[in-house]
Simulated assay, not measured.
Amino acid sequence: MSLIPATILTGFLGSGKTTLLKRVLEEAHGQKIAVIENEFGEENIDNEILVTESKEQIIQMNNGCICCTIREDLREALQLLAAKKRQGLLDFDRVVIETTGLADPGPVAQTFFMDDEIAESYLLDSILTLVDAKHAMTQLDERQEARRQVGFADQIFISKTDLVAADEVDALMHRLKHMNPRAPQKAVHFGEAALSEVFDLRGFNLNAKLDIDPDFLTEEAHDHEGHDHPEHAPGEHCDHPSHQHGGHHHHHEDDVKSFVFKSERAFDPAKLEDFLGAIVNIYGPRMLRYKGVLLMKGTDRKVIFQGVHQLMGSDLGPAWAAGEPRVSKMVFIGIDLPQDIFLQGMEQCLV
């Protein structure tokens, strides 16, 4: 049986997760989706779509989708679904896990890597985070869970943009990009998103693509290459032209931040392994996502690297193409990570 793709849908309370989910479930896309609801809230999807008083935990919907509401362990629910699929009792193509609005998606993502049985049945495709444009600035200021959800995202959907001014949306997108430059951002109205932006994003694939907005890199370079202004971390107040959006600055000092390491020199594999092992030991719980395409001594192939919290893995990617600039790029997204320690440490692992 081929692996079942799984998508984690997260986002703060009221950000529109259920709206997006209902739209995906109701669309006639010929896919059968099993939904694991990780909460009991007023917004529960089954009161509206299923209109059933059944005490059954797994409910088959009329369009072939399945809704499974869990109180107990996610792992058990995933194993149960996979077992029923293997036995031919349930037919579905993919799983969507909707987390509670206050959840940290990290442990949910880790379930797919740490549990052998789950890893044999499922492939974690991506983490989608919904952000409510009207309330996001306050939520990001006040709640670390909201900031973590942004840091983990492979794709960010911004809902309710019609309720706020364009420059506010712009400021929000700018802020989100500093927290997570890997995740593309898209405004969605009432959950209307193309399925190609929801499924098969391969956010956890160890592939050669490192999605960092190129503007983010130039902005970073602009900030850190020895200009005569004092250095500041991304997200701090500053008034370089690249940070001015219609004349207002962002004053938000978020604890979830990202930074990028770049070098044209090759890494010494043993040194890099030691260094990454050491920082993951110390900072692992605060490291949300990190991913790189690296130039390594001793191979003509790219080395693709990524991790979530303390779990990391690497893989040989395709060969560097003729004429392609051989540059290592690594992005770190985490909570109050000491940027200088990370960047200097990476520098010391170069040949």
Rank of each mutant, 00 (worst) to 15 (best):
L3S: 10
A6V: 15
A6W: 00
L9G: 01
T10N: 05
F12P: 04
L20W: 08
K22M: 13
K22R: 15
I33N: 02
G41V: 15
E43G: 10
S54M: 02
E56N: 11
I59R: 06
C67S: 08
E72D: 13
D73Y: 02
L81V: 13
L90W: 09
D93S: 13
R94F: 01
A103L: 01
V108N: 01
D116C: 04
A119H: 07
Y122Q: 06
D125Y: 04
I127E: 00
L130R: 15
L130Q: 08
A136H: 12
Q144G: 14
Q144A: 15
F152H: 13
V164Q: 05
R175Y: 02
L176Q: 09
P184W: 03
H189N: 09
G191T: 14
A194D: 10
L201A: 05
R202S: 10
L206C: 05
F216K: 07
F216C: 04
F216D: 01
T218K: 13
E220R: 14
H224L: 04
G226V: 14
P230C: 02
E236Y: 10
C238E: 08
H240K: 09
H248G: 03
D254R: 11
V256M: 03
F259G: 09
F267H: 00
D268L: 07
K271R: 12
E273Y: 05
D274Y: 04
L276Y: 00
R301L: 06
R301M: 08
Q306D: 00
G307D: 00
H309P: 00
G317L: 04
W320H: 11
W320T: 15
I341E: 07
F342P: 00
F342G: 06
V351E: 06
